[in-house]
């Protein structure tokens, strides 16, 4: 296998540098009500790692002092962090585009139902992962009963205007393959999701993002145990698309972990590869000038973002042919 940096050299794209910081992504904790088979964070209900009020406050200050277009909140299940509510209301008052990556099914639970109101009231954009529009495939990855609970919450969100044109309330879905293969083109899958969700579930959403499963965390364990690891790596490398490099997510994002440490992306968090810009890699020493022209820390896992039409938290990176 050719190393990722060598591959970048071959297409004259090495070294990989940040271009700006447009997205401020916060992973607010590893605790989750689910234990999905593909989760790169390997989140569980037992995890104790949650972002503190002090770190939230430090993040809020950085956001206020900078003009990032988007605040992107992920986890674990972000709702399981007790400080999320207050943080969202503070950010919303500043009018900053704010995304929460929710598994939605947590909103079925009584103690978390309040977030439906919080999201609606503050115009929070919701991104929710639904691996497949068919019950059996999704439940295979996410656990029995997930699909129905997910659809129940989508129905509630639709009633509030989420996923409906003109409401201003955005519900985007995420597709990731249920197995050791790459996602197809986003328009093709979005069309299929829309057809099935509308006809079979009377459920509606705005857009679908396709995300390639990264060979780390629980998905790596699955690849190993199922004998797919070597072929999956080969598939990722063979599908390397130089056209994705320009728009790689790490080039316009800074990723914060629950302790306030800074990373190039959520995957580097899991691999414990903090930013390499020569300054303190923590929100306490946040330095925009250095960070927005930093050298990105790459590894072979980066093939996951450059395969095919590319993959990011916002879906595909390169235009379909």
């Amino acid at each position: 296998m050719t190393g990722f940096d060598e591959k970048l050299r071959q297409v004259s794209r090495f070294p990989l540098l940040a271009k700006a910081i447009d997205i401020f992504q916060m992973n607010v904790g590893k605790r989750c009500n689910l234990q999905c088979r593909h989760c790169h964070v390997q989140a569980t209900p037992a995890h104790r790692e949650l972002m503190s009020a002090e770190t939230f406050s430090a993040c809020a200050k950085i956001i206020e002092n900078n003009s990032f277009s988007t605040v992107d909140i992920t986890g674990g299940a972000p709702e399981m962090n007790p400080h999320l509510d207050e943080f969202l209301q503070g950010i919303a008052r500043k009018g900053r585009r704010t995304i929460v990556r929710s598994n939605l099914v947590i909103l079925v639970e009584k103690s978390y139902r309040k977030f439906i109101d919080i999201y609606e009231k503050n115009g929070i954009e919701i991104i929710a992962s639904l691996p497949d529009p068919r019950r059996e495939k999704t439940d295979r990855q996410r656990g029995d009963g997930f699909f129905q609970s997910f659809i129940d919450i989508v129905h509630e969100l639709n009633l509030r205007g989420y996923g409906r044109e003109g409401s201003g309330l955005v519900l985007n879905l995420v597709h990731n393959p249920v197995g050791a293969y790459l996602p197809a083109s986003q328009p093709a899958l979005e069309s299929e999701y829309r057809r099935r969700m509308s006809a079979e579930q009377q459920a509606f959403f705005n857009h679908l993002f396709c995300i390639t499963n990264m060979p780390i965390g629980r998905f790596l364990t699955y690849l190993n145990q199922s004998g797919n690891l070597t072929e999956y790596w080969q598939t990722l490398e063979n599908a390397f698309n130089p056209g994705t490099v320009e728009n790689l997510m790490c080039r316009n994002t800074i990723s914060i972990d629950w302790t306030g440490a800074l990373f190039d992306c959520d995957f580097n968090q899991v691999l414990e590869l903090p930013v390499n810009h020569g300054l303190p890699a923590h929100v306490s020493g946040f330095d925009l000038d250095s960070l927005q022209q930093r050298l990105i820390r790459t590894g072979d896992h980066c093939y996951g973002c450059t395969a095919g039409l590319g993959s990011s938290c916002q879906g595909e990176l390169a235009a379909s042919e």
Binding site: G179, P183, L189, E192, Y193
Partner: peptide, 10 residues
Amino acid sequence: TNKCLSLGIS
């Protein structure tokens, strides 16, 4: 077969 899987074909 891989393309079918990628396209969500059962």
